[in-house]
């Protein structure tokens, strides 16, 4: 008799240790796409103590769980957009879990930005006016949007304006700035006057422009090279507003010849006369 009781106890103990199988809750308002933020996701189940996690491709998002009579209602803690695409909704209770594949779509994609990356950022007109442009569109929740037809990305090589200046690929984004820099001077004109008070020649060059008519960059070095009595002198000045000037004291009975150069561009040689 004692043995029978012991067997009974053992069997009932083993049965109580066995995991109770839970039936998979029925997703009542399931549809092809899970539009986010969703109001409520309703499930039918008689089990309690549920946990619900929505696994997007990036991260697990815990959902609010409300348990009612034979039902389970889920909603998002933060009513915001998500990364779109395939995702998993996992319901778990007492060590058991159930998976519901979903496809996330945002009801409102928020602001869609047209991204325009330019490269290179600095264009030097003498080395060509071509620039690479990479275009795509991103919504507020970092989902890449279709750009043109079935393509998500587009890139091409464009020709930028030859007018020197600072431009923006997107007028609203200062980080999208790119720079067109003037090239080197194509023609140097020298002129001079004689300053009687200081008894010296003042040699000037103005309006130095590149091949596209841009005033050449401030700080470009211009060399004035002049010869007096078979000796050659060189004087360097920095260009400001496309021009520069220098002065050479007059030496009686000596002929002064001068020319100027910027990089590889030379002016005509002129003879200084009072």
């Amino acid at each position: 008799m004692v043995r029978v009781i012991l067997y009974c106890l053992l069997i009932s103990g083993a049965l109580s240790c066995q995991k109770q199988t839970i039936e998979k809750p029925v997703f009542i308002n399931q549809s092809d796409s899970l539009f986010v933020p969703f109001g409520e996701l309703i499930f039918q189940t008689d089990q309690a103590n549920w946990n619900a996690i929505l696994y997007t491709v990036f991260q697990p998002i815990e959902l609010n769980v409300y348990e009612g009579n034979d039902s389970l209602i889920l909603n998002l803690k933060n009513e915001t957009g998500l990364v779109e695409g395939p995702a998993k909704l996992i319901l778990s209770s007492e060590g058991q879990f159930f998976e519901y594949p979903v496809h996330i779509k945002n009801t409102d994609s928020g602001e869609i930005s047209s991204i325009d990356y330019r490269s290179s950022k600095t264009i030097h007109v003498d080395y060509g006016l071509s620039q690479q442009r990479i275009l795509h569109k991103i919504d507020e929740f970092r989902n890449i949007r279709l750009f043109k037809g079935d393509d998500y990305f587009y890139s091409d090589i464009i020709t930028v304006s030859s007018n020197a200046g600072i431009y923006r690929a997107d007028p609203n984004i200062s980080l999208s700035s790119y720079y067109v820099q003037p090239g080197q001077s194509v023609n140097i004109q020298l002129s001079y006057t004689f300053d009687r008070q200081k008894n010296s020649f003042v040699i000037t060059t103005v309006n130095n422009r590149d091949q596209y008519g841009n005033t050449i960059s401030d700080g470009t070095i211009i060399s004035f090279i002049y010869s007096i009595d078979n000796k050659i002198y060189r004087e360097e000045k920095a260009i400001l507003d496309g021009g520069a000037k220098t002065s050479i004291p007059d030496i009686p009975n000596e002929t002064i010849r001068i020319y100027a150069m910027i990089n590889n561009t030379f002016s005509k040689t002129i003879k200084l006369e009072k």
Partner: peptide
């Protein structure tokens, strides 16, 4: 799965800037 990505080189490595999870 198929995924479209935009990566940007920031700091001293590539970072993810945007994604389109196309299918799985």
């Amino acid at each position: 799965a198929n995924i479209a990505l935009v990566l940007l080189f920031q700091g001293d490595h590539w970072r993810i800037d945007a994604m389109r999870f196309l299918d799985e």
